[in-house]
């Protein structure tokens, strides 16, 4: 798939000035299993970008390719214009990756852990002291600096993990499922930290399989499924983004009884479903056979009193379901 095939391509082109991440025609296989078929997308600089897909879509593989843990087999990946294949060390200096599992030195105290990574990045003693104090403050872990990591709750370990990826002051943060396993309070607090980081000018990529979790947080989103990018663009664009057929929402003046089935049988109607918690129906039509005026007229001919009619704005979950396929690979 090339740029032109991507839904939401227009909005991406408008936002991108200089991309923080640029993937072009990336494919990757693990033996005979093709994890990524053709992945092309860009992440704008200083944005909070959601990277969403169902389980097994290839999210972690993409993140590992970006952060240089995997070597690209096909295609190119650039981080701040640097090729991950040839300028690996410089790329590593500029990014911080937090994996989805808690891979921590749990025998260390919080302070030792951060000090260890700060020293490993080559920071001087003074720099380390300052950076650790800052990251502890940002993640609100200052009071637990002397605690063993093993004794911390999952949410706190997540904060320490985040503090760790910040010690080298990276421009790009890659967070793989950072909110998984966290309780609602810890999730909200994590999101607040991420907003604070964005305001500091960092580019943040968060992978998740729950789109709604990222809706309020992210400026842009990439949806991936079965190794292919299904959407890349703004969050609003995703909601407005058309499915295969234009969809309208009809609010009847009185409950539909037999008329519901009759609506479904109209020529040109390709989808019909009730909207949960209301009398409304969502109707998808084939524009070659029926337009919105025709649909409205046909509904009135069936004796339906129409209280309201207009294009249906889909819920994020609906958009996600439309874009991704059923079942697992």
């Amino acid at each position: 798939m090339n740029d032109r095939d991507l839904p939401g391509e227009q909005s991406t082109q408008q936002v991108v000035v200089q991309p923080a991440i640029e993937l072009s025609g990336v494919a990757h296989s693990f033996r005979s299993f093709k994890a990524l078929l053709d992945v092309t997308f860009q992440v704008p600089l200083q944005s909070l970008h959601g990277f969403v897909g169902p389980n097994g879509a290839g999210k972690t593989t993409v993140l590992k390719l970006i952060c240089t843990l995997l070597k690209p087999q096909i295609g190119t990946i650039r981080v701040f214009g640097l090729d991950v294949r040839t300028e690996l060390t410089e790329v590593r200096r500029r990014l911080g990756f937090m994996p989805d599992h808690f891979s921590m030195y749990r025998q260390m105290t919080v302070y030792e852990y951060l000090d260890f990574f700060a020293a490993a990045y080559g920071l001087s003693l003074d720099q380390r002291t300052r950076v650790i104090a800052d990251t502890l403050e940002l993640t609100d872990m200052g009071a637990r600096r002397g605690d063993l990591i093993n004794g911390l709750s999952r949410g706190m370990q997540q904060r320490v993990g985040l503090a760790r990826v910040l010690v080298n002051d990276p421009d790009l943060l890659l967070l793989d499922e950072p909110a998984s396993g966290l309780d609602p309070r810890a999730r909200i607090e994590l999101m607040e930290i991420l907003r604070a980081l964005r305001s500091m000018g960092k580019t943040i990529v968060i992978s998740s399989h729950i789109l709604t979790e990222l809706a309020e947080l992210c400026d842009s989103v990439t949806i991936i499924d079965r190794g292919l990018v299904k959407y890349c663009g703004s969050m609003e664009g995703l909601l407005d983004h058309e499915a295969d057929y234009p969809t309208y929402r009809l609010t009847p003046g009185q409950p539909l009884n037999g008329q519901f089935d009759q609506l479904g049988e109209l020529p040109g109607v390709v989808g019909l479903e009730p909207v949960e918690g209301s009398q409304d129906v969502r109707i998808a039509i084939d524009p070659a056979l029926l337009d919105s005026n025709g649909l409205l007229r046909a509904a009135m001919d069936l004796g339906i009193t129409i209280a309201k009619f207009g294009p249906a704005q889909r819920h994020l979950n609906q958009a996600f379901m439309d874009l991704t396929e059923k079942g697992v690979r």
């Binding site: 000090d115 020293a119 380390r128």
Partner: peptide
Amino acid sequence: FSKRITAGGNRVWTNALAWK
């Protein structure tokens, strides 16, 4: 050592990997 390190007495060596 844990208390001493958190009190700022002992710190990770410049060669962090060797320290660990």
